[in-house]
Write a protein that binds this DNA or RNA. Structure first.
Length: 465
RNA sequence: GGCGGCAUAGCCAAGUGGUAAGGCAGGGGUCUGCAAAACCCUUACGCCCCGGUUCAAAUCCGGGUGCCGCCUCCA
C-alpha cells in the first residue's frame, strides 16, 4: 500500500505521489525564537520528524528544511525587556531549540535557514512581486495586494468576502484593502533594520517562508507542514506570494497538526498556561514525552497534564521491560535456529505497523500494534522452548519500529560492576540451598542500590530501576 | 457572523455501515519459597441528545446540545 495523507488543500486523504520518484521535498514552518519551546511547539516538530523518518523508512530521500524566525516584533519586545541584544536573544533560543528537540529525538533538518541570513533573497522576492503588480509600496511599507490574486482563500477554504468582513486595518497601516498584508515593514526608531529599495526595515512574517522555500527547495515542493493555526493566515499568504511570483503550485500536500491543550484549553505563550519542554525533560525521560505525543493521531487535539504523562510512561516501561526480558531469554536460549509460528505472527505485526503508518501516519494505531505484539511476545516467553532466531527477530523488530517513531523501545544493555555480580551469584547459591533468609537479604540489599532481581524459569534476571 | 475540529469506560484513545482495539488505573485468578515480571478473566446491553434511512448505524442523513480553534504575526 502506498502512503496516504490528509491534505488541507483538498480536505481529503490522498495517495502520496512525489514530484520526483524516490525523493521528497519537505518544508516545516519553524518557531519564532523568543523563548524556550513549550510542549505545544514541540508537537509539530515531533510529528513532522516522525513523518520524515517514515518517508525515509519507505525508501524516500527526504530534503527537509525548517526555518527560524529570528527577527520579529516579539523578539524585539523580549530583547527590550531583557535589555539584551535582539540577535543575541534569538541566537540563544535557537541553541535551546536544538537542545530541547534533540532530547525529544528530533533529527536536525538538512537546512535551518534564518530570516537574518536570507535577506537578499527576501528583498529580491518582494521586488519581483512589486514588479509584477502584486505588491505596492506605501510610505516605506510594502503590502501584498490580495485582490490581484483571485484564488486567495483556497487553502483555508474561506471566501474573500467572509475574510474581508472579519479583517481590520491597524492604525498606521496604509493598506488598500483590509486583506492585504505586509511584505516589508519600515523600521521605527532604533529598531533593527536592513536596507531595501523602499525603506530601511524588515520583512513581514510570511515572506520569509516563501523566499526560503524557493531558495532551498524550488518553486514547487511536495509537503509543506505546520501547526493548524498557521493554515490561515500564514500559509494562505505564503501560497499567494509564491504562486503569484512563480506561477506554479507552491506545495502539493499541506499537513497541519492539531493542538495540544491544557485542561481542554489552548496552550500558548500569550495565555501563560504553557509547559516548557526544557522544564519537562528535567522530570521525565524525554522519550516519554515523545511517546505521549505519538500516542494520539497528529491531527487530533491532545490534552496534556502530568497524569497523562505518567500513564504514557507506564506504557513505555511495559515495552522496555518486554525488550529486556526477551534479551535475557536470548542469553539463556540454546541456539535453536528453527522458525515457528511466532515468526509468521511477527511478520503480520510488521505489516500491520506499515499499514497503520501508511494511513496518514497513524501512530496511535501503530503503537496499539506494538502493544499487541508485546502481549503475544510475553506469551511466547512463557513457553518452555523458544527459538533464538525468533527472539532476535523480536528485538530487531522493536528496534525498527523505534527508529521510525524516534522512540527507543529497546534500552541499551547496561553493565554490572563486579561486586554486584558477586552478590547475585551468592544469592543464586543461597536459593539453591533454600536459604531464603539470606537470598531475600541480598535481594533487599540490591534493591536499595537500584538493582531489581526477578527469578524466572530461565534463571535470575536483573534490571535497574 | 464566516470557516473548521471535537463529543466513545474512572482517565487517555482507536474504530466512519456488519454488531465496541489498545494503554493507564481498578477488581479477581494463575505462576512464584516469597516477590517481581508476565499471562488469563473482569470493568461501555452501549459510543452527547432526539428523529430518520437500512436486514444491520458509534459509523450515513436531518435537527438539537456542549466544548475547542481559526478569522488578531499563537505550533
Amino acid at each position: 500500500m502506498a502512503i496516504h495523507m490528509y491534505n488541507t488543500l483538498t480536505r481529503s486523504k490522498e495517495e502520496f505521489r512525489p514530484l520526483e520518484e524516490g525523493r521528497v521535498k519537505m518544508y516545516v514552518c519553524g518557531p519564532t525564537v523568543y523563548n524556550y519551546i513549550h510542549i505545544g511547539n514541540a508537537r509539530p516538530v515531533v510529528v513532522f520528524d516522525m513523518v520524515r523518518r517514515y518517508l525515509q523508512y519507505k525508501g524516500y530521500e527526504v530534503e527537509y528544511v525548517s526555518n527560524f524566525t529570528d527577527v520579529d516584533d516579539k523578539i524585539i519586545k523580549a530583547a527590550k525587556e531583557n535589555g539584551e541584544d535582539a540577535f543575541k536573544l534569538a541566537e540563544r533560543f535557537i541553541e535551546k531549540f536544538h537542545e530541547d528537540t534533540k532530547a525529544l529525538g528530533v533529527k536536525e533538518a538538512d537546512e535551518h535557514p534564518r530570516v537574518t541570513e536570507s535577506m537578499p533573497e527576501i528583498i529580491e522576492f518582494i521586488q519581483a512581486l512589486v514588479d509584477k503588480g502584486y505588491g505596492y509600496e506605501a510610505d516605506g511599507d510594502v503590502y501584498f495586494h490580495t485582490k490581484a490574486f483571485p484564488s486567495y482563500g483556497q487553502l483555508s477554504g474561506q471566501s474573500i468576502d467572509d475574510l474581508r468582513s472579519g479583517a481590520r486595518i491597524d492604525v498606521g497601516e496604509q493598506k488598500r484593502d483590509p486583506l492585504d498584508f505586509a511584505l516589508w515593514k519600515k523600521a521605527k526608531d532604533g529598531e533593527v533594520n536592513w536596507e531595501a529599495p523602499w525603506s530601511s526595515g524588515r520583512p513581514g512574517w510570511h515572506i520569509e517562508c516563501s523566499a526560503m522555500v524557493k531558495k532551498y527547495l524550488g518553486d514547487t515542493i511536495d509537503i509543506h507542514a505546520g501547526g493548524q493555526d498557521l493554515a490561515f493566515p500564514h500559509h494562505e499568504n505564503e501560497v499567494a506570494q509564491s504562486e503569484a511570483l512563480n506561477e506554479k503550485k507552491m506545495a502539493n500536500y499541506w499537513l497541519h497538526n492539531g493542538y495540544i491543550q491544557i485542561d481542554n484549553e489552548k496552550m500558548s505563550k500569550s495565555l501563560g498556561n504553557f509547559v516548557l519542554v526544557n522544564d519537562l525533560i528535567k522530570a521525565y525521560d524525554p522519550s516519554v514525552i515523545r511517546f505521549f505525543i505519538l500516542q494520539a493521531h497528529y491531527r487530533h487535539p491532545l490534552n496534556f497534564n502530568n497524569e497523562l504523562l505518567e500513564s504514557a510512561k507506564s506504557g513505555l516501561v511495559r515495552i522496555h521491560t518486554f525488550a529486556e526480558n526477551v534479551q535475557h531469554r536470548i542469553k539463556e536460549t540454546a541456539d535453536l535456529g528453527e522458525s515457528d509460528v511466532m515468526e509468521n505472527r511477527i511478520e503480520q505485526f510488521k505489516k500491520r505497523f506499515i499499514d497503520d503508518m501508511d494511513d496518514d501516519f497513524h501512530t496511535a494505531n501503530a503503537i496499539t500494534n506494538v502493544f499487541e505484539f508485546v502481549r503475544e511476545g510475553n506469551r511466547y516467553l512463557q513457553e518452555p522452548n523458544t527459538s533464538k532466531r525468533v527472539l532476535e527477530l523480536m528485538v530487531t523488530t522493536l528496534k525498527e519500529w523505534g527508529t521510525v517513531l524516534g522512540v527507543s523501545f529497546v534500552p541499551e544493555a547496561e553493565l554490572l560492576d563486579d561486586e554486584i555480580e558477586t552478590l547475585i551469584e551468592q544469592r543464586i547459591q543461597a536459593r539453591s540451598e533454600r536459604n531464603f533468609q539470606e537470598s531475600d537479604r541480598i535481594r533487599d540489599d540490591l534493591k536499595e542500590r537500584g538493582i531489581l532481581l526477578e527469578d524466572t524459569a530461565q534463571g535470575t534476571r536483573w534490571k535497574r530501576v
